[in-house]
């Protein structure tokens, strides 16, 4: 699922980044946004690998994030450490923050301020965050930044 190397093999870095960026944007339009998390993380990872300006966000940063769907179908552990981002399909309690979400759309609604419907998210009990909220805020910044950059909306 997160085998980026395979995905980009044979492509130039620029091309691969474009491809993953497009995939991320496309995942937002989909009704259920099922692929949102995967597309976001994949794009994030390639950005960290090849975009030094973006990588600055995780230099000297250590943070472990657990994302999981409420039905248990998805469980992803994301580990940032010294400028590197590792994505693994597993669960762990040793994390800074855990995000449980109903579906991709709910997670997107929660993370991206441009696509947000706060009340709906809360009313439907769509996303639950447990642990250190500040780590979530940081992740939120990094995710929003990607979307704003792709859509040419950075301030």
């Amino acid at each position: 699922m997160f085998d980026i190397e395979k995905f980009i093999s044979g492509l130039s870095v620029d091309k691969a980044m474009d491809r993953l960026g497009e995939r991320f944007l496309k995942s937002l339009e989909d009704e259920t946004a099922e692929t949102f998390l995967e597309a976001l993380l994949a794009f994030m990872k390639i950005k960290f690998m090849f975009d030094p300006a973006y990588r600055k966000n995780i230099e000297e940063f250590r943070g472990r994030y657990q994302f999981r769907s409420k039905d248990g179908g998805v469980a992803v552990l994301v580990n940032f450490e010294d400028g590197d981002m590792k994505i693994r399909e597993k669960t762990s309690d040793d994390v800074n923050v855990t995000v449980s979400f109903k579906d991709g759309r709910a997670l997107m609604n929660f993370l991206l301020s441009a696509n947000r419907d706060i009340l709906r998210g809360l009313l439907n009990n769509e996303v639950l965050v447990a642990g250190n909220l500040n780590y979530m805020y940081k992740f939120g910044f990094m995710a929003n930044h990607l979307q704003l950059e792709l859509t040419g909306n950075l301030p």
Binding site: S113, Y137, F141, P155
Partner: peptide, 26 residues
């Protein structure tokens, strides 16, 4: 303060109580 972190790059354009902030400040 950290709760506005996710919105740092959109806050100058939000509808309710927007807040002007420069790139350098962000």
């Amino acid at each position: 303060a950290l709760s506005i972190w996710p919105e740092l790059e959109t806050i100058s354009r939000r509808k309710k109580n927007p807040f002007g902030i420069t790139r350098a400040e962000i």
